[in-house]
Write a protein that binds this DNA or RNA. Structure first.
Lengths: 264, 264
DNA sequence: GAGTGGTCTAGACCACTAA
DNA sequence: TAGTGGTCTAGACCACTCA
């Protein structure tokens, strides 16, 4: 239970040479105590010991469990909160983040209406199938070419206007029971489904954005002329441990919407 | 010098009711001590007491100056560092951030080559003039319609290939001496020039991104056919106090480059 | 060796939430 | 009233930089 007893300097004693037995085994990995605590907490999040939406143990309790001061636990949790893995609520506790929240939606859905308030999209599933990963998909998802993947194609509409044409590729091993029926009947963001039903939580993502011309197929789905400029966002999403678990290629019609970004 | 003595609980005494005289005047603004310290430090940054690239006083010295503990100063600086206003360097000190650094460049230049390492662009100034702000520009820059603005148009090339066509609007009051000659002879990022010569430091920005078709003019500058899909980024930049100080409209050719973004 | 930021502790009190 | 996170202090030591 005790974290790596590296430069142990605990207990009021003035200390000098560590009483914890250091300098022996000698794995070359040193890191601050709070980083070790953070890693331990992250493990519990990843293993599902504390599920999305649930409260994690209080700072005082974790401090006792890990045999460190509350301040050290606090710094660990501070970083986890900054990374949106947990959310702190004064007077209540610290809770595991979940995609079943309005706040999380807009972290990953950056398309905003030019005027008016954001609406939730209507989803229409076009296609769901299992297939072998093409080389490019395999490379981005860190799979072997030919490994099983789930392919999803859908259109999202705002106020009745088709606006997003999206294709997704998911590792087949992680999404065994994913069917078109389940996708269709599920209301809410897809990441919520992934989190609840498949235990895979998206933590962060990288996107590469380009402008492209609508081909015949895209033009039909989005009700525009072939050649219409579309915004193309290629996203790779990661879960705990920086493991890639989703490839998504979205085509956005940006005549009434824009991709909102903050630079800081 | 002493920050607002609100819920003053300093000096080892057990304390009870504040000795600092609270509950009298009663401005309804309460904030944690470290936030007040943060505001004071930000003021010094804004006023130029410590200039970009310079070291700010040490935590110990600031703690003495503000009559608070080092931990409180530390928390204030932690947040400023998180907002990229200052940079900490262990063993050396805390330094005011500057745009004259490779690190800062890529926070605001998100266009990356699809292959190979990023290069610095060649800039070609097309036009610089003073004009009266159109209504739309005035609105976004929080000016009155008709106020003086500086207008800049330029093309940026990577490896000889024109890739970015940019228009900028700057408040005339803040950029009085800005001339085409100065822009042409200056090497490096424009924000560096703004910071050094005009004392205006860009802190953060918001961008709205769309896909558009190249018009005749853009097509000519970027050496593409009219109608070619281009990525259009409309940026509003802010300095201290969330004051808008730049409007920028960029057209990006994304056949060999992409806009890189991180979602977290 | 002096000075800086970085880590860690121990303890106090405050602000908020819910029973 | 009890429990939670949030703030603040005081002091110790570590890791790094530089003269």
């Amino acid at each position: 239970m005790n974290p790596v007893s590296s430069n142990s300097n605990n207990s009021g004693a003035p200390s000098g040479s560590g009483a914890g037995g250091n300098g022996t085994g000698g794995s070359p990995t040193f890191s601050p105590l709070y980083q070790q605590i953070k890693a331990l907490i992250t493990q519990s999040l990843q293993s599902g010991e504390w599920k999305p939406g649930e409260m994690i143990p209080s700072e005082v309790e974790l401090a006792g469990r890990f045999k460190v001061s509350q301040g050290t636990v606090r710094k660990a949790i501070d970083e986890l909160a900054a990374e949106n893995l947990v959310m702190r609520r004064q007077g209540k506790g610290t809770f595991v983040s979940t995609h079943h929240e309005a706040r999380a939606h807009f972290r990953f859905l950056r398309l905003m209406p030019d005027e008016g308030v954001p609406h939730h999209p209507d989803n229409k599933i076009i296609e769901v199938k299992r297939m072998r990963a093409p080389a490019e998909v395999a490379r981005l998802l860190d799979l072997k070419s030919g490994d099983a993947v789930v392919y999803i194609k859908r259109v999202q509409s705002f106020e009745g206007a088709p606006t997003i044409l999206e294709e997704l590729w998911l590792p087949g091993l992680l999404f065994k029971g994913l069917t078109a029926e389940r996708l269709v009947e599920y209301k809410g963001p897809m990441y919520g489904l992934f989190e609840s039903e498949f235990g895979t939580r998206m933590i962060r993502a990288t996107e590469k954005i380009r402008a492209v011309a609508a081909d015949a197929s895209a033009a039909e789905f989005l009700h525009v002329l072939e050649g219409t400029p579309l915004l193309c966002a290629e996203r790779v999403s990661f879960t705990y441990g920086d493991k890639a678990v989703e490839l998504r290629r979205g085509l956005y019609l940006t005549s009434q919407h824009h991709y909102q970004n903050e630079l800081s």
